[in-house]
């Protein structure tokens, strides 16, 4: 029976120590409990895809991990240190970069001003600009344009540029593909793979599994506020279809 218990060390990459770890996390919006004891580990340097249907608690898991939401119970560890209850801004300064669902930019600031906000994490502006414009030349052309007037793909690139430039320890990505064309999504996941190669641990939340599973080392399936299974992408396919189709 205990084999089915989520989070019990069954993963493949469990040889390296986890960089981000959630232990028995519960969280609630008002009186409505959303997470019922989530256990999740992102091993150092690995990409973990968190998959699951609507309302499973994926975004809430990210909110807890990035410090925007305080869990009602349970612990969050970063590189072995207990960071439960540490604010989002503090985590960001310690090298956690979060790209939230569909709105990773400040729409009324220019592209350049948006990039300036990344410097709170301790990198200098010249470096941020150099990396961003090299990676996404289109952003370079539009550095004085107001970010709200960029196309959806360009906005997501701008959000991702921050992840690239800061060289974070942990990158949390929420629904990167939302509302974007498949080609753009491919391109963005190419970037994710490249960031992963630099040794950054990545937790990526997706509803549509196919693209992200090509990039991920590990995948976790989440249903009704619990992690139902963790494993290599090939291992969890059954769980995944069960989660989506309710089989």
């Amino acid at each position: 029976m205990s084999a089915q218990i989520p989070g019990s060390r069954s993963g493949a990459a469990s040889s390296s120590k986890p960089l981000l770890e959630l232990r028995g996390v519960t969280a609630a919006y008002g009186g409505i409990q959303v997470l019922h004891g989530v256990d999740l580990e992102v091993p150092e340097g690995a990409v973990l895809a968190l998959l699951g249907p609507n309302g499973a608690g994926k975004t809430t898991t990210i909110s807890v991990a990035c410090g925007l939401m305080e869990p009602t119970a349970g612990k969050v560890y970063m590189a072995g240190a207990d960071v439960t209850g540490v604010g989002a801004e503090e985590l960001a300064r310690r090298g956690v970069v979060t790209v939230p669902e569909g709105k990773g930019i400040f729409p009324n600031l220019t592209v350049k001003e948006n990039l300036l906000m990344a410097t709170y994490a301790g990198v200098d502006m010249d470096h941020v600009e150099a990396v961003a414009y090299e990676q996404f030349p289109r952003l370079g052309e539009r550095r004085t344009q107001v970010a709200g007037t960029l196309s959806g793909g360009e906005q997501q690139m701008l959000a991702m540029a921050r992840g690239l430039a800061v060289n974070p320890a942990v990158l949390l990505l929420d629904e990167l593909s939302m509302g974007l064309a498949p080609l753009v999504v491919e391109e963005l996941y190419g970037i994710v793979a490249r960031i992963a190669r630099t040794g950054t641990s990545i937790l990526v939340v997706e509803q549509f599994a196919r693209t992200v599973l090509g990039v991920a080392d590990l995948a976790a399936v989440m249903v009704n506020g619990r992690v139902r299974a963790v494993g290599r992408p090939s291992e969890i396919e059954n769980e995944l279809s069960a989660a989506y189709f309710g089989v």
Partner: peptide, 24 residues
């Protein structure tokens, strides 16, 4: 200045500024 731009950023998205490491 970064402070001034952050003042405008707060208006846009408070929690995103937090995620950037700013102190809204």
């Amino acid at each position: 200045t970064r402070l001034g731009i952050a003042m405008r950023a707060v208006v846009d998205d408070r929690s995103l500024l937090k995620l950037n490491g700013g102190r809204p």
